[in-house]
Amino acid sequence: MFGYVRPRQDLLEERDLAAYRAAYCGLCRALGKGYGFAARFLVNYDMTFLYLLRASAAEAAPAGPCWCPARVCGKKTCTLDPGGYETVAACTVVLCVEKLRDDIRDKGFFKGLPARFLNLVFRGAYRRAARRLPAFAALASEQLRALAALEAAESPSIDAVSDAFARIVAGCAGDLEDPALRRPMEQILYQTGRFLYLADALDDLKEDWEKGAYNPLRYRFAVTEGVLSPEDQAYLTQLTDSSVNLAGAALNLLPGRSHHALLENIIYLGLPAVFAAVRAGKFRARAPLFSHRRREREAGTREEAPAKPGNQKKLK
């Protein structure tokens, strides 16, 4: 997905950081076990957040050592929660493959070749995931078509376009039966989906401007040379802050038993920090597909070897 939903690691307690690392690696493991080795490359921060959110209603699952393909020798600590990861892994596969299909529809034959290839690679995984969550797969497909129609019509409503995407994200909690759990979770995910769409639109604005591609911000605000005015940037920040507030209010209503501090960190600190980085043009939204080690370092899931005494860098 996008990788925008992540914690502020520098403000996390060691215990919460370890839980985040274990949840990330646990999702990677669940994707591998459920959908084959290639599906491990679909692991991302956004879906780690989804796991933590869904798992927050229960006591924290145990963690244990597991094999990591990014580490030829050695093991990592993973959250061992097969039941909890089942839906999250299926959502991850459905969302990523639907995104590939969307790319195939959007791009020409040659530019869409990588997406076509990956779509073939994940065809079997998608079938299994869609069998697991048929309603969610149908919702994602329908809303992405609605989003494509809005984009083709060059909709100036940032609410309408972000709504189509946010509904898909909110659908990740659609299978929960208890409304006291489902409703706050849907609200958190809806507002997170809105945030994701707007952050991505701002991140891509310059590029879309140069290519002449659709970007809702171009039609909603006065954009000069692919850049929003400081006033419009402040306005957009206030809109995303409102989403953060609504998500936070919903988080308070979750009957949470675990990961609450971690989820608060992601919502109240991580999201605004990411948006500030996007505003400043300093956020690298898309990590290359096979840079697993770099992504691990960014997620704090890679344990660096202790530096040798003579090779230590000076801390600034």
Binding site: S157, D159, D163, Q187, Y190, Q191, R194, S242, S243
Partner: peptide, 9 residues
């Protein structure tokens, strides 16, 4: 609009 999450509107 606010209850729907359409915050700009």
């Amino acid at each position: 609009a606010y209850r729907r999450g359409w915050l700009d509107e």
